[in-house]
Amino acid sequence: MVEERKRYILEFTDIPKERQSVNELPVEQRINNFNQVDLGFAEDAAVEEARRCLSCRRCLGCGLCLAECDKDAIDFGQADEMLDLSVDFVILTHGVERVYTLPSEKFGYGRYVNVATDIEFERILSDDGPYGGMLIRPFDGEIPAKIGFICTEEGGVDALNFAIHEAMMAKKKVDSLEIAFFCPDEDAYVKELERNYDNIPGITVKRGVVKAIREVQGSKNLCLEWSNKGDVTEEEFNMIVLSMRPQLPGYIVELAKELDIDINELEIGALLKETSKKGVFFAGTM
């Protein structure tokens, strides 16, 4: 089973399999002429290639749910509806949306199951989340003893703040939990952490840069390598939480464009205020 953002793809027995290759004109025969380069598929290769199609489908329209529904509350033929409104004011709010452009390759996000984003961690903590509010790690569902939070400059101080609150919440759930914060060696970050120090006993703050994360065979714990002014240290954690930079959701960016509002004036987390466009207000998550 391959897990990608917003995907659930089963590992069919024919995965992995190379693409069938098309015939191509050799490079040395391409110079000085304009002959077709891509020569296309032979029939058997084409059928083989077509068989690689996963035939993606969500609801398959089998109607079993309707057969089971006593109330007859399912309407497969329901169409999209168009609504036209005329309003005096527009208030734009943004939800929690994160940039996924952090050097995730380095931190192993998507590769190591126990590396989670702060949003995933919020879901894990939440009572209405996938685990019913039990703090367990995504690999084997066991309660972690040691969690590392990674905050980067790209993530910013806002994200750090969110992570601190998550750490406090996690401590509430598992009293003996050890937490380490890795943050850039800059005053803004360290001050923000220190301000909350008293609220989180059992927290350690490590200044410096996270160099690499390595997954430990078997336990799937994570070995984190970090350096501060040349000193390189290694430490093992049950789970890592990445603090991601909040960003505006795509639909807000689109709407702002349509309304001629510069997106840079829409500050994430800001309190309700009118934008440069009269009648349009913006509020961040409060």
């Binding site: 399912i74 497969f76 999209d80 509806e81 609504l83 005329s86 005096d88 009648g279």
Partner: peptide, 16 residues
């Protein structure tokens, strides 16, 4: 002074 909005409500296929 008014905003004209067009909203597409995607079918949920459930009769609420």
């Amino acid at each position: 002074g008014k905003f004209n909005i067009r909203i597409k409500k995607r079918a949920s296929r459930i009769i609420e």
